[in-house]
């Protein structure tokens, strides 16, 4: 379970998140939606430890991890797929994966999930397409064997046929039951389909929250239109 309690954070003098609280219960999937600049990515950066909080607490499975560095949070089961299909561009696809583990069985496991990567193992990650890099980013994060997975706009800027593949994988992950998922996504329909509950974030504050599912589409759109 991931819990952000009364988090305030920002950059320099700018406050981006103001007293935000979000809970992702164990085994559940939660979506955070909002317009550009609402503070979604900042919220995730706080959760993984890339941005320190000015006030508030981050709890992971009940443990206060607010002061822990990101790598220590990863060791406690927090996985993060950042925005922008990030990878280590000068390393090959295989080296990106081997950064986490050299276990052939584990790597084979994630390659089963993303078979397209199998033929790209010796190619430098910087030369992959956006969709391939996103698959690599998710595969790499899955290798860290997270109990809590955070995904930041996983389908942003990716060609439609690959988006479907990635959506299928994410849907599968959210339905696994042993994995909690926090999903930031602008594609509201997909976000609500994949998750059990949602938060709407606008100008650094939570403005709406509720149960997910297709029925929530209108209320989320209404909340985001304000």
């Amino acid at each position: 379970m991931l819990e952000l309690r009364g988090v305030t954070a920002g950059y320099g003098r700018t406050i981006v998140l103001d007293d935000v609280s979000v809970v992702v219960p164990t085994g559940d999937a939660v979506a955070v939606m909002g317009h550009n600049g609402a503070g979604k990515t900042t919220l995730l950066r706080v959760a993984v430890g890339l941005l320190p909080v000015r006030a508030g607490t981050v709890l992971l499975d009940g443990e206060d991890v607010t002061r822990l560095r990101p790598n220590a949070r990863v060791r406690r089961g927090l996985g993060y797929v950042p925005q922008g299909q990030q990878c280590f561009p000068q390393m090959t696809t295989m080296e990106n994966l081997q950064l986490i583990t050299t276990s052939k069985a584990e790597i084979r496991g994630v390659l089963d999930t993303f078979p397209a990567l199998t033929e790209l193992l010796s190619r430098r990650a910087g030369l992959l397409s956006g969709g391939q890099r996103q698959q690599l980013a998710i595969a790499r994060t899955l290798l860290t064997q997270p109990r809590m997975l955070i995904l930041d706009e996983p389908t942003e800027g990716i060609q439609p046929n690959v988006v479907q593949e990635i959506e299928q994988v994410i849907l599968g992950l959210t339905q696994r039951g042993d994995l909690s998922v926090l999903l930031v996504e602008q594609h509201v329909g997909f976000a609500l389909r994949s998750t059990g509950s949602y938060y709407v974030l606008e100008s650094g504050r939570i403005t709406a929250q509720g149960e997910g599912g297709a029925g929530a589409l209108d209320s989320v759109r209404a909340a985001m239109a304000v």
């Binding site: 993984v48 430890g49 890339l50 560095r69 990101p70 790598n71 990863v74 060791r75 993060y80 950042p82 990030q86 990878c87 280590f88 561009p89 000068q90 390393m91 080296e95 081997q98 950064l99 986490i100 790499r140 994060t141 860290t144």
Partner: peptide
């Protein structure tokens, strides 16, 4: 691999479990 990852993208290296320090 840890050295190259840290050089190429420090934040990303941290979030995949590399102690960059």
């Amino acid at each position: 691999r840890r050295i190259r990852a840290t050089v190429q993208n420090r934040d990303l290296a941290e979030t995949v479990g590399v102690s960059t320090r």
